[in-house]
């Protein structure tokens, strides 16, 4: 399964990480798109570590990050500074999409 996770809040970081790791351990791939308050999680070390894991693709909405004054300089290069186009592609490409 290709699992998509739309991260649009900063309320469930442990669940995002936990579900992603569980999915990877079962042979699935995971695409994460952060927008809105979800961009506030990007600086957390656990997310920085996750982005370079095989089977994970991570991007965020630059418009959201800028609007919320989320610092994105210095984020790992594996976290793609993107737009709603990345979200649209995640929805198109993934077999299942959850929102956290």
């Amino acid at each position: 399964m290709k699992l998509g996770i739309l991260v649009n809040t900063d309320k469930h970081p442990d669940d995002v990480i936990g579900i992603t790791k569980a999915a990877l351990s079962k042979g699935h791939t995971v695409t994460l798109f952060h927008m809105d308050n979800g961009t506030k999680l990007l600086g957390q070390p656990a997310f920085a570590a996750l982005c370079s894991t095989e089977g994970v693709a991570m991007s965020f909405c630059d418009h959201s990050a800028k609007g919320l004054n989320v610092a994105t300089e210095g984020l790992p290069a594996d976290i793609v500074c993107g737009s709603q186009f990345d979200n649209a592609n995640m929805n198109h490409d993934c077999d299942k999409v959850i929102v956290l």
Binding site: N8, M35, S64, S83, Q84, N87, A88, N89, N91, H92
Partner: peptide, 14 residues
């Protein structure tokens, strides 16, 4: 944000 996402979601021709 939800409405903005609604517009953006069409970018993959869904």
């Amino acid at each position: 944000e939800a409405l903005r996402m609604g517009v953006g979601a069409m970018l993959a021709d869904d």
